[in-house]
Design a protein around this nucleic acid. Structure first.
Lengths: 214, 214
DNA sequence: ATGCTTTAATCAATCGTTTGATTAATTTTG
DNA sequence: CAAAATTAATCAAACGATTGATTAAAGCAT
């Protein structure tokens, strides 16, 4: 049946996503992926053409889900710029947990500059989110909510960088934070609210114009 | 001569450091490294035992230089906690440029959790710097310079994460920042002062207790 | 000539991929 | 509807290439 086929392809993609994330592209072998997925090795090439094709398929499957969420937020004119940033952080914080594996995969691939066509696909996809965030921050600067000298490119780097650093070096950050960041429960109950609160406090302190009488 | 031998080993390590950084551990082959270094493949195993031994040698060569700089800073009692953070950012900002390649290598290795003994060596080494930074921040909290509710683990994550994100995804961040981060001159003249200034402004806004009358 | 250093040749293992055969499903034909 | 023809899915086996590693012999200084 069509449904079974799609399910099987999806199952392979699920496994591949996990393996690629854990082992990297080079560190993963087609044998390992097919073995864990419980399918014949040749099926990977049958379905996806090549190892790189499989990798691309893993990436592309996720792209669609990323697109419109932020645009909706960006175009909402009923809330303040800062409220948008807060919403952004909330949404972003949720993704931390739910798309953990995939984010790692993305970032790992961005880190190496080879396989340029693939990397460019990923970059273009991420730049969409980034541009949306730029728009929100610029709006805040223009309407006086945020500091005029805000370095918005660096702010975005901080937002992404902080999260990536913690999630991509789990052993390191688990030592730092004092609990196991790889534990699903800890991640959900402790880390998620923590990073949300922290990023909000941090960005608010940096971004928001407080008229202080000195 | 002994000197020639050391020079050659150092030359191999230089090449290996670059190749490992660019291609990752799995992506690099001993043939490629030996080829670019202009030595026979067997020399790598002769000098370093194995590919992993070579990798370890690359890492360990750098370790020594990292150690004491921060301790000296941390133990200086003549300056304020905030001044120490500023100094830290300055030192850190310098390293951004000068040890670019190596930092990338370190981070890439941390990202994958396998080869645990090696990763642990790296982690322990980095934790030394982190602990020193913790000490400085804690001191600032205790003496009332910094907010009592400072999340210092997250602050350190921001510090490392922001820099790593930009330097490890140069194509992405070059698009974001509007200039080529891979250009040595741009990095030195534009990016270095920019990230220093940004990180200071950001952390000051977050850390420093401003007694505001509301 | 003795003791490091360097080389070319070769090793088994693993890589991603391709093959040809077999089975299952679908479509076409009578 | 049933038999035949076609297509799709799956498999074990093997492919050539490349991997990291090892060998034994040659080079070379002291």
């Amino acid at each position: 049946m069509d449904k079974d086929k799609i399910d099987k392809k999806d199952h392979i993609l699920d496994v591949a996503e996990r393996v690629f994330s854990e082992m990297g592209f080079d560190g993963s072998s087609t044998r390992m992926i097919s073995g864990e997925a419980g399918v014949n090795m040749a099926m990977l090439n049958y379905y996806f053409g090549s190892k790189e094709g499989l990798f691309l398929a893993v990436i592309e499957r996720k792209i669609t889900s990323f697109q419109n969420i932020l645009q909706i937020l960006g175009n909402d004119e009923s809330i303040s710029s800062w409220a948008k940033i807060e919403s952004y952080i909330d949404i972003y914080g949720e993704r931390v947990v739910n798309h953990n594996c995939f984010q790692k995969l993305l970032y790992q691939e961005l880190t190496m500059n080879r396989r340029t066509e693939l990397a460019e696909t990923i970059r273009n996809m991420l730049m969409k989110s980034v541009s949306e965030l730029f728009r929100i921050i610029q709006e805040g600067i223009d309407n006086g909510e945020f500091r005029k000298d805000t370095d918005m490119q660096m702010v975005v780097s901080t937002l992404y960088g902080t999260k990536n650093f913690i999630l991509n070096t789990p052993l390191m950050s688990s030592t730092m934070l004092g609990y196991d960041i790889q534990d699903e429960k800890v991640l959900e109950e402790q880390f998620k609210p923590r990073i949300k609160k922290y990023l909000k406090t941090l960005l608010k302190a940096y971004l928001v114009n407080e008229t202080i009488m000195s």
